[in-house]
């Protein structure tokens, strides 16, 4: 591949069209997905655990902490969310540590569609922070397609820069791959704004429900073929969310996809990443699986909420030499 284009770039559709034969029919898509190399679960988990033993110290740690902060999709996805809660989150995202203006801001604020306008307004212009909205009847996704598309279009219209959709796991698990593929394509279409720009589309697999690593690899390719800008592990609403192993597998998938198609796709682990130590392990995986090209908020995100405060405490420890405590970082 002579060059690499971003999944959200104008050249990506043409590249993907080159693989039109594998998505020409349900049978062709199935053959393709089932022809991907298998995943040995024990080997994959051992590799992820091995990378988890990297010792990241001093300057490398400082770099990793700031990078991790800048990659956070600071998230609130609760039935109890209010405009006040979302505004507080936006303020936190813009200036995570009020005592240190050198602290980077987060990548995005992630909310339900009805809170998009609030977040948009709270962040104002030029914050450099995106508004991400879950859509397509997050987290279960169990509504009719037109409702999912309306949900998406509504969030985009309200000012969402990024849409986190959920796939139809039921369809995927029963082998109706084409249905999942078409749905992603339709949602991608719904992300297009009137001015023909488009919100970036993150496709959530819910790895815990896909259950096997083979499924996660197949789903990764399916989503990328359908035009996903990001692939995302999970909703954070089920028992198993992002794990080092399932995230590593998705990193390998975007690596192989870029190698094969020349289109670069981002990865977002979400749910369960709460400590700086965890976050750094993920960054080590990105570094050693994908390298520099993915080490930016444009290509890697953390879907998290409590992670931010732990990163801030570690950041304070590095600059002051003292251990910080929860009273020295702000509650959301």
């Amino acid at each position: 591949m002579s060059s690499v284009v971003p999944a959200f770039g104008p050249d990506a559709p043409a590249r993907l069209a080159g693989l039109a034969d594998v998505t020409a029919s349900d049978a062709a898509l199935r053959r393709f997905l089932h022809g991907l190399p298998g995943v040995d679960a024990v080997g994959l988990e051992a590799r992820a655990a091995g990378l988890g033993t990297r010792s990241i110290k001093t300057t490398a740690k400082a770099y990793a902490i700031d990078l991790a902060i800048s990659m956070i999709d600071l998230t609130t996805l609760e039935g109890s969310d209010t405009p006040g809660k979302v505004r507080a989150l936006c303020a936190k995202g813009r200036r995570p540590d009020p005592t240190d203006p050198g602290t980077p801001h987060v990548a995005a604020i992630c909310v339900y569609p009805d809170m998009v306008a609030v977040a948009r307004e709270a962040l104002g212009e030029g914050s450099g922070i995106s508004v991400a909205s879950v859509a397509t009847a997050f987290p279960a996704g169990r509504v009719a397609l037109p409702v999912k598309l309306a949900d998406t279009a509504d969030a985009v219209a309200a000012g969402a820069d990024e849409i986190d959709m959920v796939i139809d796991r039921g369809a995927f698990l029963s082998g109706r791959y084409m249905e999942v593929f078409e749905e992603i394509r339709a949602v991608k279409q719904a992300c297009v704004r009137k001015d023909e720009t488009a919100a970036h589309l993150k496709v959530i697999f819910e790895n815990g429900e896909l259950s096997t690593y083979d499924n996660i690899r197949r789903c990764s390719w399916l989503a990328m073929l359908a035009g996903a800008d990001f692939i995302k592990t999970s909703t954070g609403k089920v028992a198993v969310n992002a794990t080092p192993a399932n995230t590593l597998l998705m990193l390998e998938a975007v690596r192989d996809f870029r190698e094969a198609v020349g289109v670069q796709v981002g990865v977002k682990p979400a749910g369960g990443i709460r400590t700086s130590k965890d976050a750094i392990k993920y960054l080590v995986m990105v570094n050693e699986t994908l390298g520099d090209d993915w080490l930016s908020p444009e290509w890697f995100r953390f879907g998290a909420s409590s992670l931010l405060n732990d990163l801030l405490m570690q950041r304070q420890k590095l600059s002051t030499g003292r251990y910080s405590g929860p009273d020295y970082v702000t509650v959301d």
């Binding site: 990297r54 010792s55 990241i56 110290k57 001093t58 300057t59 490398a60 740690k61 770099y63 990793a64 990078l67 960054l283 080590v284 570094n287 050693e288 994908l290 390298g291 520099d292 090209d293 080490l295």
Partner: peptide, 12 residues
Amino acid sequence: MANEKFAYAPAP
């Protein structure tokens, strides 16, 4: 694969 951004500090 370039690995320049995230260089690990010595961890002896």
